[in-house]
Design a protein around this nucleic acid. Structure first.
Lengths: 341, 341
DNA sequence: GCATACTTTGTAATCGATTACATACGAGGG
DNA sequence: CCCTCGTATGTAATCGATTACAAAGTATGC
């Protein structure tokens, strides 16, 4: 026998009060007498009352959810951030919707369509390649509260939470310099990406500050992926005077690169030093354990979520992006330059 | 100036028809004349009408979302499955809610609370340790449509989608046997986990079929994590006559184990062969590249999502669990047993 | 004793869609 | 010409909560 689930009305009837009183009781508004409160709570328990979020959301003109746009869910780096976001939002009883922008990036109209139908009250975007204009709803050119995390769009003054990429690159390069390396290369992320741009720029600047050569041949194009790291290794192998150290824009690239170098008889760190970026879980277990720049991944998610919550409660957004600290983690993939190599 | 977003009423007024007609047009019901349809569409375009999912959901007594319970979002294995689920659900315009059960497992009342307030129309659970009873709503003891993916609860006849774990373990062990190994161990997953139980049982059976010893000391307790793999390595090092090959219940464990062995001067596969399970992205780039059992991760998500969609459209659920094929991927972490070792 | 203020509760409108039912109109059959 | 039926559309109830406003009752001050 299927009956409909009990509503606030059923509770009201049983308790002998109005639905308004029930609602007030359930929402802990002060103007309910203790006796009535007790009555209502008892009645609610008796009928097995369960809250209906959908109805509340309609009345409040909200959706009770935020959407997280992830470039690639399969990437552990992103899912770590997602975990951070989720932990905060669940505490606030806000639903977290995930959207993988992997296939969609091209036609961001899909995303706009999806979000414009009042599905989410706010957005956290981990995909810096998305145009913030995508999120402008057609009505009043109003925008949904929006926070970029990790990546951010190059143009405009958008609320964002990021790791200190500049400093990360500086730490990486300076570490290699301190080890005596003078021929230092860089395996870059995807071309249009802001992270790529920042890390690349900081790499070049730090090299210059140390009066070291910035050799175009030593800069390898990539896209943060394992495979692009392997590709960088193949390019490295083809160079006459290759760099003795390479700073990779992601741990995955570093792993891909080391793996491919190994397959070709080049040993890390004996023949070449490699630094990664991110400090994903696996890095400390890789062989050799990766020297890398640690990003506070989960923290990025937590801060992004907190920032979005502030925006949702109409407190607006700070002008300057939140910048989280990074840290150099020295392990076994880098070594002092030996005369032999 | 903030005005409310245009509703179906505004469209109706502009088009000079009733809201019922607008609704029928927008939902592509047949009983609308072509002229009216055109009128309505034009009006909708003009006012910049955007659908309100919340209102529709209230009327239809649904939430338009499904929830995915993930034991640990940070684990790339799970987020791959999540990606598969997401791709299917987005096509059906259904929201995907993620819930990390990491901290919650203990008090599953939290989860029940969260879901009982009409937030989701169905559930995909990747956490086999959750009691399906958790999802019983108090009303009519009705349950939300529920599909377990990857893991599943040991008891009861629950709809689930799984990889063929038995066969996976058989393939792994047989591979080691074929390489001449006779002392074979197993690094297990978490104790209560069904995957642990299945893989462990199939391991033992396959060893017996090959008339090989099943030595308790060669079975290492773990929990699928990198660290537990490293712990297994330390145990291995302490054994007088250690196994010459170990089948690890996950790639992460295999990586953790190889890493720790390496740190202690034991070479893989020269001194010991190691097989993993899952074939996560990194496995082929690890040094040495992992021999492993490939699970169709994304496919697991896709099938689980499709199954849930069937349940949602009231087609019920097949009795027997969907079983997806696994595959042995031979790489460099296993080798023929040499007389020396 | 009466006016004022405050507390507690009820009535009913509202959020924005869907849909059962009613109505109007035109076509076709006898 | 009238009756029946089908098509296109409108009217209004409904989903389940929230909340503005009103009303009733109680306490306080003079």
């Amino acid at each position: 026998m299927i009956t409909r689930p009990p509503s606030i009305k059923d509770v009201a009837r049983l308790a002998g009060v109005s639905t308004a009183t029930v609602s007030r009781t359930l929402n802990n508004l002060s103007s309910v007498s203790p006796e009535t409160r007790e009555l209502v709570m008892a009645a609610a328990g008796e009928v097995g009352y369960r809250f209906n979020q959908v109805a509340r959301n309609l009345r409040r003109r909200q959706s009770g959810a935020i959407a997280v746009l992830v470039p690639n869910l399969g990437n552990p780096f992103f899912s770590d951030i997602l975990a951070g976001i989720e932990s905060v939002m669940t505490q606030s009883s806000i639903n977290v919707l995930v959207l993988d922008t992997y296939g969609l990036s091209a036609q961001s109209a899909d995303i706009a369509d999806y979000l414009s139908s009042h599905r989410a009250d706010g957005i956290i975007c981990l995909d810096g390649s998305l145009d913030p204009g995508t999120f402008v709803t057609q009505h009043n050119s109003g925008v949904l509260p929006l926070v970029f995390a990790c990546e951010w769009p190059a143009a405009g003054n958008i609320c964002s939470v990021r790791a200190d990429n500049i400093r990360g690159a500086q730490l990486a390069i300076q570490h290699l310099v301190d080890l005596g390396h003078t021929r230092i290369g860089h395996a870059e992320g995807p071309a249009a990406n802001v992270l790529t741009i920042e890390r690349c720029r900081a790499t070049i600047e730090t090299l210059r500050e140390n009066k070291l050569a910035v050799e175009p041949d030593w800069f390898f194009k990539g896209d943060f992926s394992l495979e692009s790291g392997a590709a960088a290794a193949r390019q490295w192998l083809a160079i006459d005077t290759p760099p003795s150290a390479v700073f990779c824009a992601s741990d995955l690239m570093a792993i891909g690169m080391i793996s491919e170098l190994n397959a070709n008889g080049i040993a890390v760190p004996d023949d070449i030093s490699v630094v990664g970026f991110d400090d994903i879980d696996i890095s400390r277990y890789f062989v050799p354990a990766l020297t890398t720049i640690r990003q506070p991944t989960g923290q990025l998610g937590v801060v992004a979520a907190t920032t979005l919550l502030q925006q949702l409660s109409a407190e607006g957004c700070a002008d300057s992006p939140a910048l989280l600290d990074v840290e150099l983690i020295v392990r076994a993939s880098t070594a002092r330059l030996t005369p032999g190599s």
